[in-house]
Amino acid sequence: MKSLVLAALGVVLATAVPVAHAADAPKSITIATEGAYAPWNFVTPDGKLDGLEIDLANDLCARMKIECKIIAQNWDGLIPSLQVGKFDVIMASMFITDKRLEVIDFTRTYAVDPSAFSVPKDSDLGKAMANDAEQFNLNDEAKAKPAIDKLRELLKGKVVGVQSATANLEFLKKYFADDIEIREYKTVEEHDLDLAAGRIDAVFAQKTALAATLAKPEFADFTEAGPGFDGGVFGRGTGAGVRKADTALKDMLNKAIDEAIADGTIKKLSEKWVHSDVTPKS
C-alpha cells in the first residue's frame, strides 16, 4: 500500500509542471490571460488566443528572447493561481492597484484604459451626460468630486452591474455604495446581457470593453455616458502581474515594455484592436 501511494505521487509529480522561479532569468515562461475580454484577449473558434494582449505578449517574448506559452484562466482564479505557481505572468487587462500589490508584483504600466458607465440612451444619465469626453484621475479626488456627485445624483436608486473582483467594483463600492445597488457578474458579457434585458440600469467597465459591446446592433439604444475615470482605486493602469519573488523576470518584462512603448508597437497594436491609443503617457 505504501509503495502504491509513493508510485501514485511519483506519477503526479512527473506530470506536474515545475514553473520558472525566483531571481534567475527564466528560459521559458507561461503567461495567463482571461480569454474572455475581447478585444484585449479572447479565444477564436479554432481554440487560439487572440487580441491586443496576445499580440503584445508575443512581441515582448520575442524582445526577451524567451519561449512563451499563453494560456487562458478564469478571471477569479488568476491571482490565486499565479501565487500557487500555475503560471508566471498575468496579462489580462489587469489594473495595478494597491490591493493587488499587497499579494503580487506588477511590471510597469503597458496600457491606460479608463472606466466609464454605459446606460440606455433615454435614461437620466444617458440624456444628461452621453459621450462625455471628460477624464478624471482619481489621484486628485477633489477635482473629480463634482463629477462623481453628479453621477450619484443621476444614478440614485439604480442597479449597476460590474465584473466581480475588479477595480471597477472597488470604484463603485468606494463612491456609490450608499446610492446604488451593485450587482456582481463573473464576466463582461453577462452584465451586458442583463443591461440589454433591462434587469440592470447601467454597467460600469473599461471604456474599450464598453465600445466593443456598444458596436453590436443589439446595443443600438445604449450609450457610454459620463466621464472616464482612472488613477486612485484603478491604480496605475494596466500592467503584467508577476510573483513578488520573480524579480529577474519583472526586470526583463519592464525593459521589453519600455522598448515596445518607445518604438510605437503598443500604439500600433492598440489602434489595430481598440481603435484608440492606450499607450501610457509616462
Binding site: 505521487l9 503526479v12 509529480l13 506530470t15 506536474a16 509542471v17 515545475p18 514553473v19 520558472a20 522561479h21 525566483a22 500557487v84 505557481g85 500555475k86 503560471f87 510573483r243
Partner: peptide, 14 residues
C-alpha cells in the same frame, strides 16, 4: 512536498 524531496520552486497541479 517537492521542496521536501529537493525540487525547488513552484509546482503546479495540472
Amino acid at each position: 512536498f517537492s521542496h521536501l524531496v529537493g525540487i525547488e520552486g513552484f509546482v503546479g497541479m495540472p
